Simulated assay, not measured.
Amino acid sequence: MADGTVFRGITPLSPSKDVEKTIQFYFDVLGFKPNGYGGVIRGDVEILFYQTNDQKLAEWTSFRIHVQGVEQLYETYQSAGVVHPNGKLSMKPWGNLEFAIIDLDGVCITFFEKRE
């Protein structure tokens, strides 16, 4: 459907056992800045958090963030010890170079760069 609408991004809602602690982790370890209303922002990416004690929600939540400079980001996060053991930087058959982390609450985040 070509109606002239331009999509600019998406803001995921991510579960958290302790929103303030999660925001601090994203700030200290992942390089995001607090947005002042329950989330974080880095570049054009914003993530909002909601309080929950349901661990399964976090473990079943994942999202992907498209970045430029994925190799540098990987090195930074590898040094911080947050890269998931099964999520090391690799080229995927669909043309993305990507890696994954698990945040404090168990949410899986994949960072990727298109390499077609």
Results as ranks from 00 to 15, higher is better:
D103V: 08
Y50P: 06
S16I: 04
T5R: 13
Y37A: 11
V29F: 00
E46K: 10
Q68M: 06
K88M: 07
I41M: 12
F63D: 07
K92G: 08
I41T: 13
I41D: 05
S79C: 00
T61M: 11
I23V: 15
F7E: 07
F32Q: 06
W94L: 08
P12A: 09
W60R: 14
N96Q: 14
Y74S: 01
L89W: 07
W94C: 08
S62A: 14
Y37D: 14
Y77P: 02
F25S: 05
N86E: 15
G69M: 05
F63I: 10
Q51G: 04
T11V: 15
N53F: 08
Q55D: 13
N53Q: 14
Q55S: 14
A80L: 00
V67G: 11
Y74R: 05
Q24A: 15
T61G: 08
I102N: 10
D105A: 06
E116N: 08
L13K: 11
E113Q: 15
G4D: 11
V70G: 03
I41G: 03
E46Y: 01
I41E: 13
D103Q: 04
A80Y: 00
A58E: 05
V83G: 00
K21V: 12
I23H: 03
A80D: 04
T52E: 08
P34G: 06
K114G: 07
K114N: 05
V45A: 12
I10W: 08
V40S: 03
A80W: 00
Y77R: 04
Q24G: 01
F99C: 04
S14L: 09
Q55P: 00
I109F: 07
L13H: 13
D105R: 01
L13T: 07
A2Y: 10
N35P: 06
M1N: 02
V29D: 04
F27Q: 09
T52Y: 09
G39E: 06
D28M: 00
T11S: 07
L73P: 02
L97G: 00
L89P: 01
E46H: 03
